[in-house]
Design a protein around this nucleic acid. Sequence first.
RNA 1: GCGCCGGUGGUCCAGUGGUAGGACAUUAGCUUCCCAAGCUAAUAGCCCGGGUUCAAUUCCCGGCCGGCGCACCA
Length: 609
Amino acid sequence: MSDDGTTSTDDARTSEQLVELAKRRGYFFQASGAYGGVGGFYTFGPQGAALKGNVEDAWRERFAVAEGNMEIDAPTIMPEPVFEASGHLDTFDDMLVECPDCGESHRADHVVEDNTEYEDAEGLPIPEVEEIIAEYELVCPACGAGLADQAVETFNLMFATNIGPGDAQPGYLRPETAQGIFVEFPRLKEYARNQLPFGVTQIGRAYRNEISPRRSIIRTREFTQAELELFIDPEDDEPDLSAVTDVDVTLYPASEQEAADGGHVETTIGDAVNDGVLQPWIAYYLGVAREWYASLGVDMDRFRYRQHLAGERSHYASDCWDAEAEIDGNWIEIAGFSDRGAYDLSKHDEYSEDRFTVFQQYDEPRTVERAVVDPDMSYLGPEFGGDAQAVVDALETKAERDRAAFAGESVEIEVDGETHEIPVAKTGFAVEEQTEAGEHIVPHVIEPSFGVDRLVYTVCHHAYREDEVDGEERTYLALEPEVAPTFVGVFPLQSDDELETRARDIVDELRAVGLSVTYDDSGNIGRRYRRQDEIGTPYCVTVDYETVEGSDASGDGRNGAGGDGETLSGTVTLRERDSTAQKRVAIDDLAVTIEALRTGELTFDELDG
RNA sequence: GCGCCGGUGGUCCAGUGGUAGGACAUUAGCUUCCCAAGCUAAUAGCCCGGGUUCAAUUCCCGGCCGGCGCACCA
């Protein structure tokens, strides 16, 4: 393990085995296979759907319920204006230019920015970019061939669709669940009774028309996000870090990434905040998330938080840390913790008809002097016609900024580049004392955003084990009980009506208390254990002849046991997946015992028997 | 989107210009019974479209899909 090659080879092998296992056992597989399959779309099979559901439940429990946040479920399709406002339409259209010689595609705007004085080529229209490339005789960054006369094409990473018949109302599949929350902010703030801070969560699908989907379910075109948008008052709200201050974290800050000899920093949330490495709100969620990830079985030796470099941040983020898990020797992003600032709400406030602000009352009402105008419209209307409203706006602005201008007989304002003189008497100018109870502020947004599919993959990958039991190779998934798709398997030791009946009774009893149970009487007992090992079922119950001994004849085998303290009548074996150890448990205690194992109140080692 | 490699039962693979075989898995029966045992049987496959050919799963072209590398990942 001393050289990296060995490690990554082992890891890559694990991935191959895992993908094969996932297909064979029903975790996940490529969708629409009957029609040749389509890139970047996966179906979660019976095991995978259950596992994913368990992960989502665990997330909901921790990030919605335990934090007192509210969950919503918004549409996956939203109309075009939403994405004009969010900035996704602009930043989603990548300009690509293909080299005629070597065939490589490059971002046309990057080629322009790197080789000319243009700094924001992304905002230029395509024909202009093509002209610039021709004019500057720009060449392919890879091979040096001329790019003049090559068509610049846009590649849109959002899935477009039409809402209703025709193409009058274009819509898009959301590229992140977040927009569904931001767009509904004006109503959501009412549900929060206009009190900051408050958080809104959503678990749902998002869509990105990736150029190149890769690595199984790591990079797909349709995926599930679990996002929390926390709305805060940037002036006043501070997180309570007491619960996370001692949480150990491995950090990889931007400064370390840029340093020649930079590396991971082992610290605690509290220290990182004190050292100024982390800002408090992001720190809080990094702490919460680390413990949560650990509880789901993510290997903390293959887990870190990496800060985005300035150049890789999204258009909306002022700071971002990713949670990364090591898979195949590579670090993959499994969550992003962004400070989105006021970006999204400001944009929607500007682009929509609604108000995306929260009214914050002052502790004490404030009295302020304010210069206002109350223009005489019977004068301005006839004088300026259709421009009258613009004149009013200009007067209001002038009064706010330069009340001295109203000191004389007339005031000068500028509308559309033209200067006008307005008699002050017609403006209704006055300085008034106004009482203000508070102000409208645009909340800032802290966003922990989790990739559910990638987490499912990570949990499986980090749980993948191979060992030997009695000289036989064994593959198993050491999944945490909380996420395991099936919690217990129940088997009759061998084909026998009495054993099978008893086993089926036990299945019913365990299902009745809400456990996920599977029954299997096919093949010998060892084979059945291996089947459950492979899908990560934590426990198996086996009914044998000792279980049913005496229960038929006496009819009360469970009650007195006839004074024979050694009898195993009425007991079953309970086998633990990871150790393959077995203990005998009374059927009467079985449901309670297994339930306690599931919740973690009891460990297998603590069991008698 | 480009390059390299690949695509054969559920899974993993072998093979062939005359439509295929193994292993594992699955199902049933017998047997055994607490860790992938044995026997018998059954189910099940050549990615799609064109071309060449009497005949294509095989050769050629294109497409689709996958892995890896490049680019991309807002």
